[in-house]
């Protein structure tokens, strides 16, 4: 009985991975190139530094992927990261301490996400426009808290998260495990169904609305966590530091095969997509490209990577 269930499990996983093998291959090739360019990567310090650069992007890509799986999208990712960062830089060194401050950051992130989710789901407004408007409100809030970069994060906390130990990698594994757990709860189970076919899911008794609102809350929580980490990494808060994350999160999720229409894609794909983006940026940095040329290369690589399956299909004779 157990063997047949596990056999079925791996068969399903195999099907779900089908579109992702090329992506895993590209990621592996880039990692090999990076190791060739920078052999120091294979030390504890190298892995720590690399995973610290990857960690916030991985979190926001997960935040975007959760929403896209539930049939939504968010353009307020970057603003929420900034808000999390400035709140962290204001509170962590204050009377609340690191634990209290971090809790406030995560709560605020979840609350902003839940609010957007409630407006999208209950009031029936298109997600892309609501989160666009929400990004202004959230960015404004961050600017009110901290008009210019500043604040402080306790040194030991920065050392813990962004020092020479791979704590970030461990945290990422923890987040992925928690995601697996979430998928096993009723809300998580109905996430894919709510994204793929909301009406059918509703008629089957799945808590569609609740599941979608929860996805927005989860997304906000992950963004705020990324903001907290960035604040620890830089040792200060910056009200506009998160802006680039909005675009990169969408790019990573789409590179990872997460569909725009909901219900299609996997979290491991989104993580692989974010890893690809992150390595790409590091490799270009090591090749000595000026930061500006990185924009050019990034734009090209994203299009090529997304178009690759289609190009491959065009070369194949049609039957």
């Amino acid at each position: 009985m157990t063997t047949s269930t596990s056999l079925l499990y791996w068969r399903i996983q195999n099907v779900r991975n089908r579109g992702l093998w090329w992506l895993f291959a590209v990621v592996a090739a880039f990692i090999a190139l990076y190791v060739y360019l920078f052999p120091g990567l294979l030390s504890t310090g190298g892995i720590s530094k690399f995973s610290q650069n990857w960690f916030p992007l991985a979190l926001v890509s997960m935040a975007q992927a959760v929403l896209m799986l539930a049939g939504g999208i968010s353009l307020s990712i970057g603003a929420t990261v900034s808000l999390g960062g400035v709140i962290a830089a204001t509170l962590l060194a204050g009377p609340l301490g690191v634990a209290g401050g971090s809790a406030v950051v995560l709560l605020v992130g979840a609350a902003t996400g839940l609010a957007s989710g409630w407006i999208v789901v209950r009031l029936g407004l298109p997600a892309i426009v609501v989160t666009l408007a929400a990004s202004f409100i959230i960015a404004g809030w961050a600017l009110l808290i901290m008009p210019r970069p500043g604040g402080a994060v306790p040194a030991w906390f920065s050392d813990l998260l962004a020092g020479n130990t791979p704590v970030a990698l461990g945290l990422l594994v923890l987040v992925v495990l928690l995601w697996k757990l979430y998928l096993a709860t009723p809300l998580g189970l109905s996430l894919y169904a709510a994204g793929e076919n909301p009406v059918g899911a509703y008629r089957s008794g799945a808590p569609v609305d609740l599941s979608r609102i929860a996805a927005y809350g989860l997304s906000g929580l992950l963004c705020a966590a990324a903001g907290l980490f960035v604040a620890a990494q830089t040792g200060a808060g910056d009200p506009v530091i998160g802006n680039a994350f909005t675009l990169n999160s969408i790019a990573a999720a789409v590179l990872g095969g997460v569909g725009f229409l909901g219900g299609r894609g996997t979290m491991r794909g989104a993580l692989a997509g974010s890893l690809l983006l992150s390595i790409m940026i590091s490799v270009m940095f090591f090749l000595g490209l000026p930061p500006v040329a990185q924009y050019v290369a990034q734009g090209l690589i994203i299009v090529v990577a997304v178009a690759l399956p289609e190009i491959a299909a065009m070369r194949r004779p049609r039957t």
Binding site: I250, A251, F260, Q298, L300, I302, V303, V306, A307
Partner: peptide, 15 residues
Amino acid sequence: LRVHPMIMTLAMATF
């Protein structure tokens, strides 16, 4: 190439 409009135009903007 069937790239999603959001990705294509975003990548173009970055480029």
